[in-house]
Simulated scan of single mutants.
Amino acid sequence: MAKQLQGKVAAVTGAASGIGLASAEVMLAAGARVVMVDRDAAALEALANRHGEAVIPLVIDLLDPTACATLLPQVLAKAGQLDILHANAG
């Protein structure tokens, strides 16, 4: 796959498994840095170890409205920009 997303930053919620993980891995393969958002800290750590610096783990429980409100500020603080948001967490 061409590096169509080179230089882009994506954030994917529910990124530790299932559709969120599959989406994040496609974006990584396309050259994006991906902020992987999930409440499963151990899974995010393992994914960051597997994929390297292109993964930016962000532990947030999106069922908590107060925590949910911090999503964008935390993404911007960690990555400096946001080009793509895949709101996958249900």
Rank of each mutant, 00 (worst) to 15 (best):
S17T: 13
G52V: 03
E53I: 07
N88Q: 12
A54Y: 09
D64R: 02
A2P: 14
T66M: 10
T66P: 00
A10K: 04
P73D: 11
M27L: 11
K78P: 02
R39C: 06
V35D: 09
A22H: 04
L82D: 06
D64H: 02
D38W: 05
A30C: 08
A11E: 01
K78E: 07
T66V: 12
L21H: 11
L47H: 13
E45Q: 15
V37L: 03
V59I: 06
H86M: 14
G14F: 01
L71C: 02
D61M: 05
M36S: 08
G31L: 04
R50Y: 05
A10G: 08
L21A: 07
A11L: 08
R50L: 13
A10S: 11
P73Y: 08
D40K: 12
L62W: 11
V12F: 05
S23Y: 06
D64L: 05
A11R: 00
I19Q: 09
A32V: 09
D38K: 01
H86F: 14
A77N: 11
G18L: 03
Q81E: 09
L47E: 08
N49L: 14
G90I: 07
L47D: 08
V75E: 06
I60K: 06
L82S: 15
A22K: 02
Q6I: 01
D61Q: 12
N88R: 02
V34F: 15
V26F: 06
L71W: 01
T66S: 13
L63H: 06
V34G: 10
L82I: 15
V12T: 00
R50H: 13
G52T: 09
E53R: 10
V12Q: 03
T70H: 05
A42G: 14
I84W: 13
P65H: 10
G14R: 00
H51D: 11
Q81P: 09
Q74P: 01
E25S: 10
T70C: 03
